[in-house]
Design a binder for these strands. Structure first.
Length: 814
RNA sequence: GCCCAGGUGGUGGAAUGGUAGACACGCAGGAUUUAGGAUCCUGUGCCGCAAGGUAUGGAGGUUCGACUCCUCUCCUGGGCACCA
């Protein structure tokens, strides 16, 4: 009899390590990747192991992802839940610099530490197949991907003005520059002219944009990606320069306002500037000189006060023959559009400010909702987004959107303009002048030029270099390692030089999920069969901060691999769920802010189960929250009460009433639904409610206790396993089927119906199921209630609304 | 400036347009214990002895009924940005 066994005290430290060890030894969470019949790839973004270990902020999403995976497993899926470390790259290297250790040695320490901690929190990882991006068996294939990109013509070298972080001493991709600052260290990013490797991600702009409609991702992330791609439909309009050969081409999305154009502005980089020869030359040169000393960030940061200089030339507006003075101003950027803007001060704030600054005329060509047709003299009169055309010849009276199409047709017909689509997205700058990354597999030969390293020679191993510090010269530390860079040309065998830059960390993480199911294969980055079975990823959980970094790059690389015939899908993550952040004292946890919470001490004090449930009970996984340990005791108490419930368990089935059944099945339904939506907080709350109900009973059935344990198992895997065994059930609870709801128990026999008078609840009626649809009876019952009579006295009932089983509402007046 | 999320007790947070504040923390009172930062019970939005009133950032609106839908507005967090 289950009631007679000796009951120990609940001491997590005596349960958890023991259970973790057993799970790992038995490979309980390592599915047979070839035989699995219902594969489910449950993935969590792998961590940067750069800090001293996992903090509570990291642990939060890992736990959430694990709960989901455990739930799916119990629902009968063959869940594959792998883990690895994104340990190559600048973050790990910076940490190594900080603690003054070599990154390679450090990686061994952090690897051990991270995996130990991930074990301690009880996540159900497949420990047989971890991926570490800094191991040659992994980065061999990162280099292989680079080679595929090169072969496809998607990797190219170009000298360009690039983002340079003076502190990290390397170039950065546009995606890694946030408000003009380095994403990693916060230093002000400078512009440098350097020859660098790029990936032609812009070729995929349209597909990256369009596919967003087909994937189940949060709208927030999709919007961020859409904005980053920044597609714009517009037209390039040609303006002949008066008394000169040149034409100036201006890109605009608002050709409808072109009758209101009063000037043209070109950026200091514009080719027309170089050709200028006239009396204004000195003034122009002075201005150009001044802007040259400013970085792009400075030009933006310096505020909105417009500066500029008149060239002395005029452009002709073909539409009306008007002469538009050509100005030079640094608010026009060389790399945006055509580097030249047609100024319509009536309908663009920036143009208006420029016109005000230099006394240029303003013409109104759009009337907005306010109906104001007067001359535009104030900023708030500038009508940008909507309205109808005036003072615009054949466009008059049209809505601006209609007018835009009409004038585009007209301009194209006349040969004065050409429709174009522009994107904000720029090519992915992939090379880094750092040490700790995969060397770019390229060789430069004087005779043969750029020669890719033959695939059979991969990996190009990163040599152990004592002096791994970034140099700041624009060259990687590998540039001073002749043993590394002196090689024979693979083509002509003559002497040649290796590329000494390494690739961006984000290239590692752009494909790691393809590697997990295929870690034992040495002949290919990912096995065809395995990939077909397991990919794309079914559920991906991670931070929204990677919206335009990792998530974007992964989509790009996947598309390219599909085009090359290596994959059969082009979107890597079917579902992406962005978790919230656990913050501390209002700030994201980070070592530099000194607000990192280490989970170890809580695990020691309360156990991993308590910490897991506590974190999940804080709120929905999508929201995160401010970490306080105030309520931790309450969760510990909750688990302890579950432990103590063993005493009440009896084999006597008569202990279960219909009411008990109803509560149980309601709980199963609620918990199941909530986990599906990753609303773990309310799932836990309903388990607590059920526990409160069970605690009030003298005795409970084994059946009830079993289901309680099963529902709790994903959240508190250790204690439930222990209790499952204690009541004599078959090991392991984590391999059991998820409880099912029986609808016949969900039917209510009685309903509480609230009685409202003028919208205010005045009484509550208990109505039996068989009378619930009888409106007259319910109304009569309500009228008979003393409380209600009090409120109805002396008033007349105007209307009665009855919603069966919910509410009866009287509308009364005096 | 534009685009997203949000704003509910002392706290974390619950609520298919239908009894606002589930669940938990905290707090108060009680029981039990040699003792407890243990356990159990009761209470707990605010005002009020009560009846009742009042309450989901603010102002309107739709509705028998609004945390929920609509309009305006304020605040917080995030993304984009002299992008033409």
């Amino acid at each position: 009899m289950v009631t007679s066994r000796h009951m120990k005290k609940y001491i997590p430290s005596q349960i958890e390590p023991k259970r973790q060890k057993k799970w790992k030894e038995e490979k309980l969470f390592s599915p047979d990747l070839d035989q699995a019949s219902k594969p489910f790839y449950n993935l969590m973004m792998f961590p940067y192991p750069s800090a001293e270990g996992l903090h509570v902020g990291n642990m939060y999403p890992f736990t959430g992802s694990d709960i989901f995976g455990r739930f799916k497993r119990m629902q009968g899926w063959d869940v594959f839940e792998p883990i690895g470390l994104d340990g190559f790259g600048i973050h790990s290297e910076n940490y190594a610099l900080e603690v003054n250790q070599h990154p390679e040695e450090l990686s061994k320490v952090t690897e051990k530490r991270f995996y130990e901690q991930l074990m301690m929190i009880g996540d159900a990882y497949d420990w047989n197949r971890t991926v570490e991006t800094y191991k040659p068996e992994f980065y061999k294939w990162t280099q292989w991907i680079f080679l595929q990109m090169y072969k496809k013509g998607l990797a190219y070298r170009k000298k360009a003005s690039v983002n340079w972080c003076p502190k990290d001493k390397t170039v950065l991709a546009d995606e890694q520059v946030v408000n003009g600052l380095c994403e990693r260290c916060g230093s002000k990013v400078e512009q440098r002219m350097l020859e660098q490797w790029f990936f032609r991600i812009t070729d995929y702009a349209e597909r990256l944009l369009k596919n967003l409609e087909t994937i189940d991702w949060s709208e927030k992330v999709k919007v961020a990606q859409r904005n980053w791609i920044g597609k714009k439909e517009g037209i390039n309009i040609e303006y002949q320069v008066e008394e000169a050969e040149e034409k100036i081409v201006c890109f605009t999305t608002r050709p409808d306002t072109n009758f209101g154009a009063t000037f043209v502005v070109i950026g200091p980089e514009h080719p027309f500037v170089a050709s200028l020869q006239n009396s204004k030359l000195k003034e122009i040169q002075d201005y150009i000189e001044k802007t040259k000393n400013k970085s792009e960030a400075d030009r933006i940061a310096e505020g909105r006060k417009k500066t500029g200089v008149f060239t002395g030339f005029y452009a002709i507006n073909n539409l009306n023959g008007k002469k538009l003075p050509i100005w030079i101003s640094d608010f026009v950027l060389g790399n945006v559009g055509t580097g030249a803007v047609v100024g319509v001060p009536g309908h663009d704030i920036r143009d208006f400010q420029f016109a005000k600054e230099f006394g240029l005329p303003v013409i109104r060509v759009v009337v907005g909702k306010d109906g104001d047709t007067s001359a535009i003299t104030r900023k708030n009169q500038v009508q940008e987004a909507e309205g109808k055309m005036i003072n615009s010849s054949f466009l008059d009276g049209l809505d601006i959107h209609e007018a835009t199409q009409k004038i585009m047709d007209y301009l194209e017909e006349k040969g004065w303009g050409k429709r174009v689509t522009s994107y904000h997205l720029r090519d992915w700058l992939i090379s880094r002048q750092r040490y700790w990354g995969p060397p770019i597999p390229i060789i430069y030969c004087d005779k043969c030029g750029i020669v890719p390293v033959p695939e059979k020679d991969l990996p190009v191993e990163l040599p152990y270099v004592k002096e791994f510090r970034p140099t700041g010269t624009g060259k990687s530390p590998l540039f001073s390692v002749p043993d590394f860079y002196n090689v024979a040309c693979p083509k002509c065998s003559g002497s040649a030089r290796r590329e000494t830059d390494v690739s961006d960390t984000f290239l590692d993480s752009a494909w790691y999920f393809l590697r997990y199911p295929s870690t034992e294969f040495t002949q290919a980055p990912f096995d065809e069969k395995r990939t077909k079975k397991w990919l794309p990823v079914d559920m991906y959980i991670g931070g929204a901060e990677h919206s335009v970094l990792h998530l974007f790059y992964s989509r790009f690389i996947t598309m390219v691999l599909k085009d090359l015939g290596y994959l059969e899908f082009e979107e890597p993550f079917k579902t992406f769920f962005a978790h919230g952040l656990i913050i501390k004292d209002g700030a994201k946890m980070s070592k530099s802010k000194g607000n990192v919470i280490n989970p170890d001490k809580y695990i020691e004090e309360y156990g991993a189960d308590t910490l897991r449930v506590y974190l999940m009970f804080m709120g929905p996984l999508s929201e995160g929250g401010d970490f306080r340990d105030a309520g931790m005791n309450g969760i510990y108490r909750f688990l302890q009460r579950i432990w103590g419930l063993q005493e009440k368990v009896t084999g006597d089935r008569r202990q279960v009433t219909v009411q008990d059944q109803r509560i149980m099945h309601k709980t199963i339904k609620k918990v199941t639904g909530d986990i599906e939506q990753l609303k773990f907080n309310t799932a836990i709350a309903s388990l607590m409610e059920w526990l409160n109900h069970l605690s009030r009973k003298e005795k409970m059935s084994v059946e009830e206790y079993k289901i309680l344990l099963l529902l709790l198992a994903p959240f508190a895997p250790h204690v439930t396993e222990e209790l499952w065994e204690a009541i004599g059930e078959k090991y392991s609870i984590h391999k059991q089927s998820w409880p099912k709801t029986d609808n016949k128990y969900l039917e209510e026999k009685e309903f509480t119906v609230a009685v409202q008078i003028n919208g205010k609840v005045r009484d509550v009626l208990l109505i039996q199921k068989d009378t619930i649809d009888d409106r007259e009876v319910v109304e009569k019952m309500a009228q008979e209630s003393e409380k209600i009579q009090k409120f109805l006295a002396g008033k007349s009932v105007k209307k009665v609304v009855y919603i069966p089983g919910k509410i009866i509402s009287f509308v009364v007046s005096n």
